[in-house]
Write a protein that binds this DNA or RNA. Sequence first.
DNA 1: TAGATTGTTAATCGATTAACAATC
DNA 2: TAGATTGTTAATCGATTAACAATC
Lengths: 210, 210
Amino acid sequence: MITAKNCVARLSRYKSALNRFKTLGFVKVFSDNLADAVGATSSQVRKDFSVFGISGSKRGGYKIDELIEKINNILGKNEVQQVIIVGAGNIGSALMNFKGFEKEGMKIVACFDTDPTKVNRLGNIQVLPIEELKSFVLNNKIKIGIIAVPDNAAPGVMEALLEAGIKGVLNFAPIQLKAPEECVVNNVNIESELENVIYYVNALQKSRKT
Amino acid sequence: MITAKNCVARLSRYKSALNRFKTLGFVKVFSDNLADAVGATSSQVRKDFSVFGISGSKRGGYKIDELIEKINNILGKNEVQQVIIVGAGNIGSALMNFKGFEKEGMKIVACFDTDPTKVNRLGNIQVLPIEELKSFVLNNKIKIGIIAVPDNAAPGVMEALLEAGIKGVLNFAPIQLKAPEECVVNNVNIESELENVIYYVNALQKSRKT
DNA sequence: TAGATTGTTAATCGATTAACAATC
DNA sequence: TAGATTGTTAATCGATTAACAATC
């Protein structure tokens, strides 16, 4: 990996904070403002920007519009990113209807499922049989896929995506998926995120007692 | 924070790996097996266990059943954790129907929404008006809440949860929520996770070209 | 026993923060 | 100009890894 993952994640956060600042009518920000907005230090904001070659003006801070523009470029927002989903269950369906992606220039173009009863070629976003995955990915030059299937099905889906030539995967199955170097995998484990909260709530209560 | 967040997250991963090992008929594991399963080093596995006071037997590794038991205790699995959701939109509804929580001893007991048309007292999991949030939380001694509302509504919901006495929050709104020390917040930003994948796919392609 | 694995300490690595010269 | 903020380097902090004595 070229750039630290946290660093890119913070870039996303800066961007949403900047959009909020813009809504409030701000025109420029200082590293200090951004730091407050995302819960970081001003040093970190400036360091992150320097990593990505973003510069402001000394004494004048950063112009919000320019900053958003630059961050969007870095995050690949100059073109709409076409994304497919595998798995039309709870999570998959929610993501199909999720407004957040569209707003960020990411478009779900199709969903795939093994269950024939879930296939639907008439909807706003088609649900297709898994057999059509490879041809669809090739024909439409899709690079990004989301896995939203149960954990036992996930490794198989990963293989199918790799074989179809997918270059990046966001995985919601509660299993750590691996891929060869040429494919990026980001595992999001919702159960584990909730377990995390529960752990700290309990830990906090225990430490309170002593 | 008492223990590093990554450390707790890995604990969750060890647990699911252990469950898979168990399904395969294994009775004991070595730190090396677990490391392979979750993509860590054996040093790290043993270090993590030592942080939580988990010990195995030299030469004999760890008994899977005991290990699962111990990890479950640490993660608060000795009792079913009751959780509420705020927001019955796409994400909120998916989480209500999500099987993954139940399997892990976490139970969604109610959902709250401002939209009266979404209220439903007859379903398997009730959807209640947001006005009933506080009394429900108090009456049922709920400690954990999930936020699944748009970003502009999220800070208000956070306040309402705090006022109701919630001690831990898992936030899916794309905004970094803050809370006083006595409340734990874990922010999961799905858009940002996908952006992350896109960034690395692009970065990889660029580095390939040079 | 000999060999393999744990548990822990020390070394390394990377990420965050502090500090400050440059400069608007 | 004087004061404030950037950009960057050095210092600090924390997390991961390597190494190895203890021991089953």
